[in-house]
Design a protein around this nucleic acid. Structure first.
Lengths: 245, 245
DNA sequence: CAGTGGTCTAGACCACCGA
DNA sequence: CGGTGGTCTAGACCACTGC
């Protein structure tokens, strides 16, 4: 017999159920970023669907930025590379005038009881232990960004054991490699405030100087919240662009 | 004879040329926001295309937020209603705790030579006369936002003649009604800075307090730049949200 | 009820890629 | 060259809307 059966609520259109099925495979780690998925013809055969229906399903996932099509090659699980999304906003220019990726210095990394706003975002109990990390980002040895990062247990327990030198400026590849957690998307909330005494001394600016504050919650493919992060950076290095329709 | 011919480069796919054709009709004002367009069956008949090809064309325009489909009713030119997009960012709460739309007070409205950054954005000559307007937005009679607005001539010449009381807080409906110019989309650029002496006195805050600065260029359906605007508002009222994938 | 968009079928042929 | 996605056809039937 050929023709596998689509799971899920059969009141939903087939193309949605196929999209759900592929999305779930990725969430479970059966398909990982970079992997090629079955061709449209194979999927049509396997699920006993018309080619057009399969295309419609894939179109959804391409739209969600989960898959990408490459004409003549195949359809692939997309690499979600936005750990540096901050650097679409902040432009850090070195002495040579080129964009720089700030180096990273971890100031603190320890277990702490999660405060309410973090606990709520990460769906853990208020006051439950979680990993807290404090990082400084520098360009030309000058501080430009401070980060407070919270990670839930037990999902990230391995993260406490890693040697600091194994942690580069990009955390999401570390989360994947050491903890098996893939960040698929994020929500960011942005505002500005005066630096204040605490952050002005860290960033070596005047307390009255404005800083941009970006809160980010990062999610896995299955919408589990993986990381809460608050970043503060010099407002004058910051420029955000948005299209509105 | 039935079967109209698609214009444009015939090396392009038919669905793209149909989408271009509909987009152009809207840019020329033949179809206006709220209008119903021909049904998929009619379009297929008229252009001698298969229904699926017509659907693909419409899908593009729906994706671009130019059209919207309504099941059982038809397909319509979408109303681009984002004059109040600022108020997805700024939340102005009145004494009763509800969101308020700030009232508007025009401080200045006159012809001035366009500075370079404005001229470039609006594709006019540097130093050429353009309409400049300075507005203050208030909530409970307290200033919360200052705007500098530039409009190109001769497209907006009628705008100088309008009585101030005919200009409400929303400008884009006025542009449409009085000048026949429809804003279809916009690009916004966002940063923050200390208010400084000029704006602190207008906004009644300390010069060191941070303000959010939003530059916006508004475009017509045919991508002609219609308006350049710079808004400054209290950073503490500001919260922007973005999804990243 | 007629008319609209939404889902789905079952193909054909083309354009692109890599071996 | 074989395999992939991209375009296009020509329908059928369903679900929703408003008269």
């Amino acid at each position: 017999m050929q023709g596998s059966v689509l799971s899920g609520d059969d009141r939903l259109p087939k193309y949605m159920r196929l999209a759900d099925s592929i999305r779930t495979e990725i969430a479970l780690g059966k398909r990982r970023p970079g992997d090629q998925i079955a061709s449209e013809a194979e999927l049509a055969m396997h699920y006993d669907l018309a080619p057009g229906t399969v295309r419609q399903a894939i179109a959804i996932l391409v739209d969600e930025r989960i898959l990408e099509r490459q004409h003549g090659k195949g359809t692939f699980v997309r690499h979600p590379r936005f750990d540096s999304s901050m650097f679409r906003f902040f432009r850090f220019l070195g002495a040579d005038g080129l964009d720089l990726e700030p180096e990273s210095r971890i100031l603190r990394r320890l277990l702490l009881p999660a405060p309410e706003h973090v606990a709520q975002a990460l769906s853990i109990d208020v006051g439950a232990d979680a990993i807290f990390m404090n990082r400084l980002r520098l360009v030309d040895s000058k501080p430009v960004l401070v980060e407070e990062i919270w990670l839930p247990l037990p999902r990230f327990s391995a993260f406490l054991e890693i040697e600091e030198r194994e942690i580069g400026p990009l955390l999401y590849p570390v989360y994947d490699r050491e903890c098996g957690q893939i960040v698929a998307r994020a929500e960011e909330y942005l505002t500005a405030e005066a630096a204040g005494v605490e952050f002005s001394s860290i960033l070596q600016i005047e307390p009255s100087e404005p800083v941009i504050v970006i809160d980010r919650i990062a999610y896995a493919y299955d919408d589990v919240a993986l990381e809460w992060r608050r970043s503060r950076g010099l407002a004058k290095e910051f420029n955000y662009h948005a299209s509105i329709r």
